[in-house]
Amino acid sequence: MTYDRFLLDRARAFAPDTEIAARLGPRITLHHVAIATELALKAWLAHKGATDEWLADHIGHDLARAWLLADALGLEADETAREIVDQLDPHFRKGGFQHLRDFWTAGFEERAPALLGTLIACVAARL
């Protein structure tokens, strides 16, 4: 298995479905969505030649930077999936958000798994 496909496989593993999301609750669900988003975007960057070391040094948990680079390298993801980055990046980049009050906009926790599914499908179709 190539590194890009390995990362995409891990993104799928972290992606919560509706049933799991209901059991996890919004904070843990959104944490999983953030992790899966990071992995999916890094899968695309790895597909374009980024190494694990480069990803760690230049992307880390910065979803916004990963999105911008993936877009610049031709991912062409559905812009609706960008909502994940807009909502979660500031908190995820700082190490998570399990201790913060609800910071997302109303209804985002219900939309997030489907938005993530769109992003993962986009990456998978292009690898």
Rank of each mutant, 00 (worst) to 15 (best):
F6S: 14
F6G: 10
L7Q: 11
L8F: 12
D9C: 02
A11R: 07
A11H: 07
F14E: 07
D17T: 11
D17W: 15
D17S: 10
T18H: 00
E19I: 15
I20C: 01
A21W: 05
A21Y: 04
A21V: 06
A22N: 09
R23S: 05
G25T: 04
G25F: 06
P26E: 02
R27K: 15
I28T: 15
I28V: 15
H32R: 14
V33K: 08
V33Q: 06
V33D: 01
A34E: 11
I35R: 06
L39H: 13
L41S: 13
L41H: 14
L45E: 09
L45I: 03
H47Y: 13
H47K: 13
H47T: 03
K48D: 04
G49L: 12
D52I: 01
D52S: 09
D52Y: 07
E53V: 04
W54R: 06
W54S: 03
W54Q: 08
L55R: 10
L55D: 11
A56V: 02
A56I: 02
I59L: 03
I59R: 07
G60L: 04
G60E: 11
G60R: 12
H61I: 01
H61L: 06
D62H: 12
L63A: 07
A64E: 14
A64S: 03
R65P: 00
R65L: 05
R65S: 01
R65K: 13
A66R: 12
W67P: 00
W67F: 00
D71S: 12
D71E: 15
D71P: 00
D71K: 13
A72Q: 15
L73V: 00
L75Q: 04
A77E: 14
A77P: 09
A77Y: 14
D78Q: 11
E79I: 10
T80R: 08
A81N: 06
A81V: 08
R82F: 14
R82A: 03
I84P: 04
I84H: 07
D86E: 15
Q87N: 07
Q87M: 11
L88Q: 07
L88P: 03
L88D: 05
P90H: 11
H91S: 06
R93T: 02
K94H: 12
K94G: 09
H99I: 05
L100Y: 09
L100P: 02
L100A: 08
R101K: 10
F103I: 04
F103M: 04
T105Y: 09
